[in-house]
Design a protein around this nucleic acid. Structure first.
Lengths: 338, 338
DNA sequence: AAAAACAGCGCAAACGTTTGATTAATTTTG
DNA sequence: CAAAATTAATCAAACGTTTGCGCTGTTTTT
């Protein structure tokens, strides 16, 4: 049933003209007369001609495709971000291909390789937790494939990136708690290897010292972000000599474990919790965090995509400055608990 | 800085052999001698040769790419499903490109067209809410691009699909409630135009009649799935002459609205709620549904992807049977509420 | 010693499209 | 009316890779 798809060549053969004329006719090139042009278009339509993208891409050396590499698509943050990326890409007639590193460095390296072989026109990357070397991205330069990092970015400035300032967000969060009267504030931070942990800690310290309070390092505990780890951290706070009355949780998952544990111990009302937004419905919880740091995944994805498309379209000047875009994150205060 | 990428031709030129030999050498073709082969491979490595995928794809007429069209990537169900799809695809060395229809029929038509022009090797589709015509998929036949529908499938059998049996799931759900002693069970169903609504209703009716109870149509109300719609539906139940003691909610979002409303009215404890799983953390709610219909998005994605890859690899026999795969959904009973 | 087999490689076409250069025919210009 | 300009189309190369076939020279078989 399915015969070979119609090609330009075939149209040319039937019309007894050259393939180049057909191509030009279909593209409204001025050097093709109106009558021929119409004949071409009509026949193309009636033969159900569809341009062979593979051929065009090959010919042009452009794929009109951007690659996205991220850790886990099933994480809400990333699913929103990539949703935004696709929305932007399609506006400019680009296609999105993606792959998940599953927070595995080796996999990430492979995927970068694969994306390069696919000759994507550009790459968006949110790096995996395990990534501390970045030379796998350097090859892309020689292939002239621009890279924009988003959210999970490398710890240096000479790359393009879009990210949230977790530091300033954390300052806002801690300030909010201080303003509410809390004087001992705990923080459940992530693994110390994570840049995001550093930012949170820095923000915490800044807010504390700015308010002329003394920074107590024992109130910032690292955590592996599992439920057990969270419980460990919680216990440290419960047994702390200056038991905190508020806790900044690394993210909503941690907050969730924390709330669950505190409810079990029936001490949930002794704490105000602030978290970083990952889960859309956490505010529906009965004892939801009093405030949440919104990281605007859609906006981040959008900006990253647009920067990448810019880079793709701009003639690659070597002396190009790097886009270092910070999306201000906001502290969203939940309605007063009844 | 970035020179043109190395090509086979160049390697051939440098080594003073033909491009075909280089190609064969790189592919370990037996007709190339060991010494030449090694020379080729060494030079290729030292010149950082990377095969130009665009050229290969074009040459082979295969893209090793599968397309995914779905309504909303930001919906948890779909993000899990596509995550599974990517996991399966990459195992077989396929790449995934995707696009969102945003539940818009026209957009879906465009995307199918685009995917076809991209010459994807196969297509996975979860149709948009607004889709009632399906001829936009027929063109794909003539391009020999197999399609597998998943989750949101067309209402006929002569296509490949993977879906959950919402009907049997609903039977399980209602049976569970009946077993718990409920005798008046309400159902907040979706718009009557949705196939999914039909299935739920059918399941409801079957369970009721199988248990020799009388089916009361007024206990199944249609709803536009918004918060207002949910409240309207809830009110109908609250004012019902046989006020239900349990409610089957169309999905977790509806359940969420319902719980919120019932809590506000302080009648939450008068109801057992059962829902269909969309939101991963709904079980963390204080008054979470007593049970949830799990639709296994990962499994669905996985199966759909594998079927598609099968179809891609199988020589397309015209008389091929259609894959109509049903993923049994299970009723997940939450732990007893404290 | 002639015939057959084989190893190792090159030739050239092919995939479908685009595009700069060229040609031929027509029209405009001085 | 010859020269210049315009119009409409063609030619051919190019993009990078793969692959069937053919060629040469060596080795094995009869």
């Amino acid at each position: 049933m399915q015969s070979k798809p119609t090609t330009i060549k075939e149209i040319a053969r039937i019309l007894n003209i050259s393939p180049s004329s057909v191509s030009r006719g279909l593209h409204d090139h001025p050097s093709i007369g109106a009558v021929t042009r119409e004949k071409i278009k009509q026949l193309a339509k009636s033969l159900n001609y569809e341009p062979n993208n593979a051929a065009i891409l090959f010919q042009k050396g452009k794929t009109y495709t951007i690659g996205v590499i991220l850790p886990e698509l099933s994480e809400h943050f990333f699913s929103i971000a990539i949703s935004a990326i696709e929305d932007e890409a399609i506006k400019k007639n680009y296609t999105v291909i993606f792959a998940q590193s599953h927070d595995n460095y080796e996999q990430e390296v492979k995927l970068v390789e694969k994306m390069k072989n696919q000759r994507v026109d550009g790459l968006l990357v949110s790096i995996s937790k395990g990534t501390s070397k970045f030379d796998h991205f350097e090859k892309l330069n020689s292939f002239n494939i621009p890279v924009v990092f988003f959210d999970r970015i490398p710890p240096f400035k000479n790359v393009h990136y879009v990210a949230c300032s977790l530091e300033s967000a954390t300052i806002k969060a801690v300030n909010y708690l201080l303003k509410k009267g809390h004087r001992s504030i705990g923080m459940i931070n992530g693994p110390s290897t994570l840049y995001a942990s550093e930012e949170r800690k820095d923000g915490y310290m800044q807010a504390i010292t700015f308010n002329r309070l003394k920074f107590d390092p024992s109130l910032v505990v690292n955590c592996d972000l599992t439920e057990e780890g969270t419980i460990d951290a919680a216990n440290q706070f419960l047994n702390h000599k200056r038991k905190p009355t508020a806790i900044v949780a690394f993210n909503d998952y941690v907050a969730l474990f924390l709330i669950k544990y505190f409810k079990k111990l029936n001490v949930i009302n002794d704490f105000d919790i602030v978290s970083y937004a990952n889960l859309p419905i956490i505010s529906y919880l009965d004892n939801s965090p009093v405030a949440s740091v919104e990281q605007y995944p859609y906006l981040q994805g959008q900006k990253a995509a647009n920067i990448l498309l810019d880079l793709i379209h701009s003639p690659n000047s070597e002396n190009q400055a790097y886009y270092n875009t910070i999306v201000e994150s906001d502290l969203i205060v939940n309605e007063v608990k009844e």
